[in-house]
Amino acid sequence: MGNNKLTHLKELEAEAIYVLREVAAQFERPVLLFSGGKDSIVLVHLSLKAFYPARIPFPLLHIDTGHNFPETLEFRDRLAETVNARLLVGSVQESIDKGRAVEEKGINASRNVLQTVTLLDAIEQNKFDAAIGGARRDEEKARAKERFFSHRDEFGQWDPKNQRPELWYMFNGKKRMGEHFRVFPISNWTEMDVWQYILAENIDLPSIYFTHERDVFYRDGVWLAAAPFMEMKPSEKIEFRRVRCRTVGDISCTGLTLSFADSVEDIIQEIAATRVTERGGRYDDKRSEAAMEDRKKEGYF
């Protein structure tokens, strides 16, 4: 009998691949939600592994707020081409122009919440029945109870009190017309697991994850990137600093870290020493303690 030890990362990888294959087997029109962030990049990598030597059997969908770092968009297009995947883009600007979504006003305005409208519209228009996301249970309290297969009603809503029990590894993807699932293959990964995996697998990332110089300003304990659409208070002033993104999302809510880390190894050392959670630097979660839970119920990622 051979040695049957598997390291925890290998076991998490096997679990994620299993979940991705379940999606391909149980659903007719799955889609992978691609945010441009490291978690969704890891998902693409895992998808390659799950279906090798065939192509990834679902398209990538990016919900573009129109307020993205240009580096993210370039990276997105390049990745889709390299892995030979179909890329779809849902535009928040279009949702606003069509009157489907109303732009927030004021100092903390963000298009992050509006993504929900564009996402649900894209799901409905394309008749997607499963949307694969890179959310992890360690990210945030409300996510700790999320299932691998998370059922959404016909309005895209999540009902945390009425989730299907998830037993062993048998996922129940049965649904009625118009309903869909969100699927989270890396539910059990922590931020450190993701970074270690990126290191071990030598996965390419957008440059903004690494240290670079940029115009920034400080608000409520978080560094934010200065951009034409970012309204600033009179007391806030632009500074030129060495920073990197700890998560990558819409510019208006991506908190930056002052950092000199310019390799994955450096980032890992930095994270090991940091005592603040990844989402601690996300401006949108700070609005209220239960912010995430509310957005999730409405159909957010």
Binding site: K5, L6, T7, H8, L9, E11, L12, M192, Q196, L199, A200, E265, I268, Q269, A272, A273
Partner: peptide, 12 residues
């Protein structure tokens, strides 16, 4: 210094 090598050797 955090050891990535040790991290990659952990069980679950």
């Amino acid at each position: 210094t955090f050891s990535s090598k040790a991290y990659l050797d952990m069980e679950l």
